Simulated assay, not measured.
Amino acid sequence: MIAIALGGFGIGTTEFVSMGLLPLIADDYGMSEDRAGHIISAYALGVVVGAPLITTLTGFIPRRRLLLILMAFFVVGNSLTILAPGYGWLLLARFITGLPHGAFFSVSGLCAASMAPPGQRGRALALVGVGFSAATIGGVPFAQWLGQVIHWKAAYGLVVAAGLATVLALWFFMPHMTKMKPTSAATELGALARSQVWLTLAMGTVGFGGMFAVYTYIAWTMTDPTRAAMDPVLIPVVLAAYGAGGLVGNLFGGWLADRNLEIGIGVTLTAIVAVMLGFYVLSAHPISGTIMFGVIGFFGSALVPQLQIRLMDVAGRAQTLAAALNHSALNLANAAGAALGGAVIAAGYSYAAPSLAGAAMAIAALVVWLPTVLLRRRSLKMAESTYFAVKDVNGT
């Protein structure tokens, strides 16, 4: 668990620190805020493409070995980010870095779930996500500070170090997971034939996007001289507030998943709508805006393990691909949220306005959630009725 959490720490740091570094990157390359936001979309696109592709084609590789390969690839991608000579190369480097993201979390999550006692899968997945959440508390603010006092590329140097440490930890402490059977591409692709898989992915893509619409532009939002007017040196504090909320929210989401999964997802999406609206109003002040940003982190992170468990429940034998598709959906939300937030700002609205777009996205996710739950309940009842009808016919 420690080795997996360390990998999550590195991945979480590289994904989220880019958002806080956008003003520095934009200044370095002399570009607008919305164009700088494209590096966020490039990373997210790498996750969207890499997660299903890698997990589908690598089912025959032992899980421990695959985790080592993925983390080594992650180190290469972040090293290319540091060495990128121009904006185009930077976009390519971020895309490459995102490729192993979803596959790493899907494989490590399945390893944790397979070792968990009955009824505690949500808790196990939440513990796997602790490293990712801890990154937003310590790794991201520290990397942000390094980027401000040295150079924004120094932040990615920290990520490379975390990746190398993860490779060593996996090598020495990760069990070989010999009881996890290999799968074929045909088995994994079976998940794509299930409507409940697609509906769950839709919930994640739409519902999670609002968080990134806010997070991507948080540095500009909190330092806007017409609103909060926060000193830029305090942005790491704002990011740490999000991380603290995310750490607790991740555990809370695992707790909800083990108790009432379907209702828990609905409650979480409803709460996201409320906090997005609250952030739009309260972000005009440094303290209240920081607190609300932490609450956004809480409910956004609570959604992740719940969606992961739901995908595992509805995917049949295609567990690895389903888990990977969850990260594809969440990072498609990353790209969509960043793009939507940039479009709102480019249209002339305030830096806080993307939170309203985020609230609208969460409402859209609720519209998907209700029929998805009802359809699954109906199919389960039909399956139960068929089972008892066959049992009566057989006289047993």
Rank of each mutant, 00 (worst) to 15 (best):
L99Q: 06
L83Y: 10
I287A: 01
N326H: 07
D27P: 02
A352T: 08
A322V: 01
V214I: 13
A93C: 10
V214E: 00
W145A: 06
S283W: 08
L90G: 02
G204H: 10
T223N: 00
A3S: 15
V214K: 00
Q306W: 07
A135N: 05
A329I: 02
D392R: 14
G131T: 07
L192Q: 09
I96G: 13
M211Y: 00
V368P: 04
G129W: 09
G122Y: 10
P85T: 14
F9V: 00
P236G: 14
A244K: 07
W198N: 05
V367R: 14
L332M: 11
T166R: 03
L199C: 05
F73C: 08
P236T: 15
R94D: 01
I218Q: 09
G245K: 08
A241W: 10
I39W: 04
T320Y: 06
L311E: 03
L307Q: 06
L127Y: 11
S195P: 07
I54E: 05
T13H: 11
P236S: 13
K179C: 05
A51S: 14
K181L: 06
F173L: 15
A338R: 03
R377M: 09
Q319T: 13
A322F: 03
A42W: 02
N334Y: 07
T226A: 14
I40W: 13
G254Y: 10
G289F: 05
I291L: 04
L375K: 09
